[in-house]
């Protein structure tokens, strides 16, 4: 029970972060190595917003929920215009460029925000304990064992992530912007021919992808803490998820996020967290060997 809840929390934020990575790859064919740093920036901005507003944690949190993704998205869009567009989205050079971006973001955060981990207060947080029954002196009695509990905030993370993912799906399938994005993904040159401002779509997608990572971070930061090196783990996990799900396939990404998140939670609780990481990496290797295009990826022609 606890295990699957923990897993669901991991899966929820992972789905958001990996979604961003997958979207960027799907539409732009760019492997964004700096994705984890956008995540980290989201958390750091959340800390900054919540301490500057500094009244009730809920106000700070809602502020962060709006400000952080927008700021990070704008920053990413600017990075796209200034860097990625200049190197014509050349696959190899974009990898090197985003590695550079990773270090620039990480070290600037170290210089300004500092090396400490800082907490962000959750807007609400109450411990929800689940009762259990055991055979006692007076027959069956109810008690609250250790660990059989979660917090209301963790449940909120799951709900919020699902809501955001539904929103994203509506955006991609039901709106004009989504149509334009999908058109660009399907065939860039044809899209240009039909008068779609591909350059602007690219900037928007890159911003959206980074914004999703930031959103995931804002949701998780009250559970963890904001730290300048926090981007490494989500980046790795996102790549694992995206590879398993199939690069560029959004439903595949969600399925893989659920798979990795839940198995991480369950294996960590019952065995050890190290084993969970080993297994996740093993799954990636297996997928690459037997189904290189990923679970739901389309085989390349």
């Amino acid at each position: 029970m606890l295990a699957s809840l923990e897993g669901a929390v991991t899966a929820a934020t992972l789905a958001l972060t990996a979604m961003g990575l997958s979207l960027v790859f799907g539409v732009m064919r760019v492997v964004n190595v700096a994705h984890g740093e956008f995540y980290m920036l989201g958390a750091v901005i959340a800390w900054f917003v919540s301490t500057t507003l500094g009244t009730h944690p809920a106000i700070g949190f809602v502020g962060a929920l709006i400000v952080a993704p927008v700021l990070v998205g704008l920053l990413a869009a600017a990075a796209d215009r200034l860097i990625l567009a200049r190197i014509n989205y050349d696959p190899e050079r974009t990898i090197v460029a985003t590695i550079g971006l990773l270090y620039i973001l990480q070290q600037s955060t170290l210089m300004t925000f500092g090396p400490d981990a800082r907490p962000v207060e959750p807007p609400f947080n109450s411990r929800i304990a689940l009762p259990w029954w055991r055979q006692g002196e007076n027959g069956l009695e109810m008690f609250y064992p250790w660990g059989l509990a979660t917090t209301s905030y963790k449940l909120f993370i799951i709900v919020a992530a699902v809501a955001i993912l539904i929103g994203l799906w509506v955006l991609l399938t039901r709106t004009r912007i989504g149509l334009v994005m999908r058109a660009t993904q399907a065939d860039r040159e044809m899209a240009t021919a039909f008068g779609i401002p591909v350059e602007r779509v690219y900037a928007m997608v890159f911003g959206l992808g980074a914004g999703l990572a930031a959103l995931g971070a804002v949701l998780i930061v009250p559970v963890q803490q904001a730290h300048y090196l926090m981007g490494a783990d989500p980046l790795l996990l996102s790549f694992i998820v995206v590879i398993i799900g199939g690069l560029g396939s959004l439903p595949g990404t969600i399925i893989a996020a659920l798979l990795i998140g839940m198995s991480d939670g369950i294996i960590s609780v019952f065995f050890s967290p190290t084993l969970a990481k080993i297994l996740a990496t093993l799954v990636v290797a297996m997928v690459l060997v037997f189904r290189p295009q990923g679970l739901l990826g389309k085989a390349s022609a």
Binding site: L2, W146, G147, G265, S268, P273
Partner: peptide, 14 residues
């Protein structure tokens, strides 16, 4: 370097 600990606590014996 761990950042999340909830998964370690269930190993504590009753």
């Amino acid at each position: 370097t761990e950042t999340s600990f909830t998964k370690y606590f269930p190993q504590i014996p009753q």
